[in-house]
Nucleic acid binder design. Structure first.
Lengths: 345, 345
DNA sequence: ACAGATAGCGTTAGCGCTAACGTGAACCGA
DNA sequence: TCGGTTCACGTTAGCGCTAACGCTATCTGT
């Protein structure tokens, strides 16, 4: 069943069928209606690969996610795919281990599928092998790499504003020893969130203590490990800002396990505002990142390349704002090793 | 840059280039190597839409998810996509609101894209409009609908075995009043999990009390609402089995908010074993569902249709097993309205 | 009344790939 | 030596679609 079959039954040529399907105005309404009736009757669906081959556009974008298990990503995907669907576009999705070979095969498959652009949400992994693979064939939009070029755009999360609000909030609650638990160490592309934290602290005249800054892994386990170390310190921090909510939740768990309370003994600020952050106890004060805005920027960045896939990319940005819930409160008076008020298993 | 260009540079015909790329053995090794060198040099990537058009197969499957925000689905997607990627296949994913028009547009886009099959993970929504849309064009594999037909397979979660283990476990802990919080009511395809629960209770000679069985919505909010009602009862249940982990977590939250303890006052059993179930406090006793096995069954079901897309489908099944963590414990002696031991905000 | 514009539709070529077939050369056994 | 195989490749014909162009009938202005 192809357009010629439909054409024959409607008594027109296949070109006219094509015109009707694509809404060309160069068809008389009555002819269009006649053709449409045949299309409906036989539930005809055109063959997209033929269109892609002929027209050179697939209407499909690729999305590469490092770890879909991190709740941040599903929330993003939801918005991203929704926006694409509204524009009648498809999403080819792949989660990929962070090692290069599987990554390259993923990109290869996407390029074979004639994607018109790829979004790479992989701040944790090296991207050189990927760019080599892509070879400037289709536009690439990355997250938080702050690197643009031909056919290369970036959407970054501006943590400065949010981080300032967080530090101001904590300072207002009389916190002075504020710790930080960051993301992964290693081949990561310089930790912007960490820098924002440092700048915000300095901006408010607070001491930036190396001892109070630890690396995590953007997951609960990393938050737990880092927080355990911080609690072992003679002079503990009274507040913690974490690089993302999962890290904050990990910290929360360790604090509870040691019989301390949040925010009674230690205040915690997360980052991202994933749904989970409102579900844990206590609900996290966090830096809200508007997922839908973020997704819109990515789609916008992709579509900006439509006229010229090899044109110069742009740097996009989304803001973060502090969302105060219940995991932050006044600093304890004596900033010494804290004793639990009551034991909780 | 197409195969003819490569062919010219390698001094062969385009057919030979095709043969080399597809690993045909009808090419002399030295010729193949020469061609491969040119391919590598120019980083040639074949045009998949041409192959799809010619060959009639796209190597792409569609996956439709109702609510990717439910952690069950990301974990599934991870496995599903991984298995497809290993088989060098693509995944076209869409999350879709449960109303028919957006659903139909999603399916339409997938059919245009020449997917070779669609997995529909939408136990909550009506599927008649979808099947009408699909019109038996490509195989459909559903989850937990227990309906098979031409080009239609189903993968169901066998909750019987797990439910029996759960009830036995609770009975062993001296629980007699066991409640159940189910999934959504309405157009859902008969609640197999609920039936399994009822059968298991009867099998162990326990009373099935209608009053103790409530509907939820597969999310935290539903678990909360249902549990709140159950706690209002004069004669509360001493244990709850939930239709999924999110529901169980919702129940957990309400119990904690009312100053009761788990499992001290009430035991809770979840279903699915999502990662979160090991992270909440206390870690959930739950019916473990092997996500990777589940994903494998779906891929297997799809590929079983490869020889004949219109052939008869099959019913697949995955087992569940009880995983005991910390949310279940001995029943309280007096099965009367319980008083909180201590107040917690 | 007539050249030119326009609307509405048909014809055609070709997007890049590969199955099927065709061909020439090397090889084989009798 | 020679008909038949086999191997290793080239040639060709589309897969279904649509942009570009071509054609005809009607309409417009003078």
């Amino acid at each position: 069943m192809d357009m010629r079959d439909i054409a024959k039954m409607a008594g027109v040529s296949s070109a006219t069928v094509s015109r009707v399907i694509n809404g060309s105005c160069a068809v008389r309404p009555e002819t269009a209606e006649r053709v449409q009736r045949v299309i409906d009757e036989f539930k005809f669906i055109p063959n997209g690969s033929a269109t892609t081959l002929k027209y050179g556009r697939s209407g499909t974008y690729g999305l590469i996610i490092p770890d879909i298990t991190n709740p941040f990503f599903p929330e993003f995907i939801q918005s991203f795919e929704g926006i694409l669907a509204d524009a009648n576009r498809n999403m080819l999705m792949a989660t990929t281990a962070s090692h290069a070979p599987s990554m390259q095969r993923t990109i290869y498959r996407m390029l074979v599928s004639q994607v018109e652009g790829i979004v790479l949400l992989a701040s944790e992994i090296e991207t050189e092998p990927i760019e080599a693979m892509m070879n400037n064939r289709v536009p690439l939009v990355t997250m938080d790499r702050r690197l643009v070029g031909k056919g290369l755009s970036d959407v970054s999360v501006d943590s400065n504003s949010g981080m300032r609000q967080a530090v101001e909030h904590l300072q207002g609650l009389k916190h002075r020893r504020i710790g930080y638990i960051g993301g992964s160490v290693g081949p990561t592309i310089s930790d912007h969130r960490r820098n924002s934290f440092v700048r915000a602290m300095q901006g408010y005249g607070l001491a930036v203590v190396e001892e109070l800054m630890r690396a995590g892994n953007y997951r609960i386990s990393g938050g737990e490990a880092a927080m355990a170390q911080l609690l072992d310190l003679r002079d503990r921090p009274t507040a913690i800002i974490a690089a993302n909510d999962l890290t904050a939740i990990g910290a929360l768990r360790v604090i509870h396990r040691q019989g301390l309370s949040v925010p009674g003994d230690i205040s915690i600020v997360g980052f991202d505002d994933i749904e989970l952050s409102d579900i844990v106890f206590p609900p996290l004060t966090t830096l809200h990142l508007a997922q839908h805005e973020l997704a819109k920027k990515f789609v916008g960045a992709l579509e900006a390349f439509a006229p010229d896939p090899h044109g110069m990319g742009k740097q996009y940005k989304v803001e973060t704002t502090l969302l105060v819930r219940s995991s932050t409160g006044p600093a304890r008076r004596r900033e010494r090793a804290t004793k639990p008020l009551r034991a909780v298993s």
